[in-house]
Amino acid sequence: MKNKKRLRLAILASVAIVVVFEAVAIIVAWPRGDSGLPIGFEPGDQKALAKLEAETSSVRKKIAALGPKGVHIVIDSARNQLTLKSGKDTLLQAVVSCGSGSVLEEPGGKRTWIFDTPRGEFQVKSKIVDPTWIKPDWAFIEEGKEIPKNREERYEPGVLGDYALGFGDGYFIHGTLYTRLLGRSVTHGCVRVGDKDLKAIYQAAAIGTRIYIY
């Protein structure tokens, strides 16, 4: 009987401690007000407010000036969609294929490749008609073949479509033989586009055209 009472008391005491501890935690964690406001600004001071707003507007203009002016390309790698834009106008929307996100390890574990399409801002660095694919090492490893010593053995014409636009580090916007896979994430990082859309993109985008990939 006494033991039961003690047990009950112990449970009650534990619950009370937990409740108090939780209450303290909630009080301490209660969201605090906004911090870090610029020093020297007095609310209600209309002159200071006008000055601040003018400064904000000037900084906003500087940000706007950093954005693309003319034709630019926006690629949504999650939805495999490419949009060719001029200012705020959309010139073309195309279904594309972006990186598969797969991983390839070289037997022996020396090198590893992750086939993601890179994200960020890029520029069209090269424009090629009738491109020939110069197969990189990973292509041979993936096929289980030996890496050739002769450069000519790496050449594979006719697989990249009619045009290719390079945007650095071996990444290209190019055509594809596998048009049925457009809309799926299947590439090794490049952006595959259907023939008709590729021609329009090639014609509209000059060297230096900005590419935004997210």
């Binding site: 906004d34 610029p38 609310p43 209600g44 407010l49 707003e53 400064e55 940000i63 960020g120």
Partner: peptide
């Protein structure tokens, strides 16, 4: 409303300044 505006303006100013630093880089 004047008080609300006063609080918003410094925040907008700070946001613009911080965003400018991020927008200057080619990263998302």
């Amino acid at each position: 409303p004047a008080r609300g505006l006063d609080q918003r303006a410094p925040l907008e100013n700070r946001l613009a300044k911080e965003e400018l630093l991020l927008a200057k880089t080619p990263s998302l």
